[in-house]
Design a protein around this nucleic acid. Structure first.
Lengths: 235, 235
DNA sequence: CGACCCCTTGATTAGCCTCAACAACCGTGG
DNA sequence: CCACGGTTGTTGAGGCTAATCAAGGGGTCG
């Protein structure tokens, strides 16, 4: 799960104790609804999920996609009830654990809790980057930026550079993540293909020149240099 | 600083030890530049600050405003270098403290570190809410939403409902926070005045009917119910 | 085979941006 | 004291980006 620092045996043991059960969800299934009371986190084991907010007028803003290894629901921790709706993008298996266990973690393992803290902070940065993209860049750059983010995160979790990947998102979902309509996402993606920035084959996307796509998108890869130097020593 | 749970004497002592010195900045002064190495946090004592991202084409997205009592720079914690530029909106006095001291905090005071964690998570929610506003609501609602957020946060830090407040922001700054141009912010604000949702007198803004402004803005006040029940016991 | 979802494309509309000009206000220096 | 430049707020006219509306095609599942 945490691939950032090497863990002690005891720390590993504590983490594994959290993953007792798993739950599976079908594509499109709602995992948690906005304003539901929330007393547990999830770790994604397989599949993709998304967290989004639904507005009164029927529109939706997707805040973040969650890949295998990601932790979902940290953001509900401070409020007791979920601030966002969580939906399975593909068929997905999640592994829930309760907040109480986090409290235990904070008491027993300062370094692990600091690490969890880092993860939460990194997520804030990611949401902020999306905000910059949506607030201040044109449609084409927003789509490119989302693709860059997915690419960077997949590469990071694979542990090696990836240049071709499966995107199980509909164009409507891409639109809801970038603040566009499905129709306009379509046009932008065709434009990117036409200009050789990406290649498409069904749900497969290939990026021949990542740096070119990144400059088109104004993308900064923050995952590349996560700093763990400030963490306390293992206790 | 932390007005969420009652602290033990020892916890208070540890917090006060952090605030040794203060620094003051003039209006518009850059406190920290993007990509600068960052090894300290700030607590705002007086004045307003903002964190923003500057793009290549000269535009800027303001991610968040910081008021007295807020902690700035948590987001740089995971990366070692600042992910955003921090600027003083008004003349401001800040009080810096180093990351190393946070590590100590995590080891000695599980409950305080969990509280800091909550603050970080709440900030993620706030950025996410802004993303929803910018991504999926029209200009008028975005401006209204920003005003609602400022109002809610001021009320929260005052500890009582506020209906009239001083906004030291230029319309360009409001635009950079909401993803609009200064010109369009102007038109939207005049529209809000015209429809009786707000009143303006120079930099003073009054909100006669907060609930009406909130429904115009699709605003949800998350500060109202922060949950601290999951925190571990004081050690 | 039909129903449904998703992608695709065209035509039109509307929301917001750009450019431009001017008034009000401020601190500065003569 | 006033003249001055600089910043901010205000308003108008016109243009462009992205939304809306609409229609058709391919794929999959029941």
């Amino acid at each position: 799960l945490a691939r950032y620092v090497s863990l002690t045996a005891e720390e590993k043991h504590s983490l594994e104790a959290l993953e007792e059960q798993t739950r599976t969800f079908r594509r499109g299934a709602t995992i948690r609804r906005e304003r539901d009371p929330a007393r547990e986190l999830f770790v994604v084991q397989t599949g993709w999920a998304q967290s989004c907010v639904l507005l009164g007028n029927g529109s939706r803003q997707i805040l973040r996609f969650h890949f295998p290894g990601d932790i979902i629901g940290i953001s509900s921790l401070a409020h007791g009830r979920s601030a966002e709706t969580i939906v399975a993008v593909t068929e997905a298996t999640l592994c829930p654990f309760e907040y109480d266990k986090i409290a235990v973690l904070f008491q027993r393992h300062p370094r692990l809790s600091a690490l969890l803290f880092s993860v939460a902070v990194a997520e804030r940065s990611a949401v902020a980057d999306r905000l910059v993209s949506v607030g201040r860049t044109p449609a084409r750059a927003r789509v490119a930026s989302l693709l860059c983010e997915i690419l960077a995160r997949l590469s990071h979790s694979e542990g090696r550079p990836v240049s071709e990947f499966h995107v199980p998102l509909t164009q409507e979902e891409i639109g809801d993540a970038t603040g566009l309509t499905a129709v306009h996402v379509n046009r932008m993606m065709r434009g990117l293909v036409e200009d050789g920035l990406i290649e498409r084959n069904g749900a497969m996307v290939a990026v021949p020149d990542e740096s070119r796509l990144r400059s088109e998108a104004n993308f900064v890869d923050r995952l590349a240099h996560l700093d763990t130097g400030w963490l306390p020593d293992p206790s």
